[in-house]
Design a binder for these strands. Sequence first.
DNA 1: ACCTGAACACCGTTCAAGT
DNA 2: ACCTGAACACCGTTCAAGT
Lengths: 201, 201
Amino acid sequence: MTAPETCAPSPDDHAPRRRARRLSVDDWVRAALNLLVRDGVAAVRITRLCAELHVTKGSFYWHFADITGLMEAVADHWCDAQNDSMRALVELGSMAPRERLEAMTASLVGDRSWAVETAIREWARTNVIVADTVRRLDRLVFSVVQEALLELGFEPAEARMRAGALVYACIGFLHARDSLDSLTPDEIRSTLRVITVRPDA
Amino acid sequence: MTAPETCAPSPDDHAPRRRARRLSVDDWVRAALNLLVRDGVAAVRITRLCAELHVTKGSFYWHFADITGLMEAVADHWCDAQNDSMRALVELGSMAPRERLEAMTASLVGDRSWAVETAIREWARTNVIVADTVRRLDRLVFSVVQEALLELGFEPAEARMRAGALVYACIGFLHARDSLDSLTPDEIRSTLRVITVRPDA
DNA sequence: ACCTGAACACCGTTCAAGT
DNA sequence: ACCTGAACACCGTTCAAGT
């Protein structure tokens, strides 16, 4: 799915300046992801991509069968990245449970990749393949959180429920991040405390 | 923005059967909202709307200047409905705080209108007017929840933070509702308990 | 007042021809 | 191997003409 870089290390790496001819599949995927994040699913159109990459539409159709082909490549690209970060999640197992949870929420709250996340989740609403990957990711995160809460001493039922609360809160934070901009990072961390501290401890 | 019903009370109210000629603005808005919910923002196209309503495209352009005009009407329609439910929210003030919170989350979890909610929030990502209304709604819900938590005896800072957690969790639940389908309505209610019960009470 | 039908510009798609 | 350029079908938009 990913084409090898045939040319010498390009001097204009991700600058949108005058292209050095010959595009790779990855160039198209990157450009599409940019449009997706900036202006939503509806905005990633062939004409616009060609304008940004300074090529004619025939070029597009040499790399992809149609617009669905591009979108699949974008989905695959994101899935790969997602698999990587999921593997990283699982390997968090060595940390103490509370630190593990803190690391997870911190990476979510502080990450600059939240824009990609929300764009992808928007896309997932109308693309089953993407929806499936998002679902797998959400479930993995859920089970990792649940495991941590179990280690913290919560009853199974209680751990399940609190894990749900935490994961939902994080997803909600992703989507409504600028609706409730009144909340500070400190307050976000306090939220983690409320959900993960045993009332009887 | 809304046209008066000129014809006699239509016998085929919302059935997609053979149309009884003459459409109102509301008919177009309803059809657009249907498409929006079913297949996302990208799917509400003039050609498709005309096919569903059994008219030619010229008919569309008699009612609206362009596709943006339709979308504005849809946004207005949704805002009106939203204002109504916000007024209802504020009038919840007479209930005891805990019952108030329970009523709010119940209406969110049980409501069949979650499909509309998520579609609108997807749309909000690329439409500033819609985004603004969603933001106002979120903030109102936040302040109502915060007020309830204050009445329950939480410190102001604590109430702010817990209100944020609850609102985020609800929004997250809206978006990821079928990712984590493992959670039962009962478990959702338990979540409310975790966030709204004072540890020292 | 509300709609049809034909016209045109624009975007997705194809493909023969170029380097 | 990767791209151009012209062709065509389809969708958004306009408008004169119909009821």
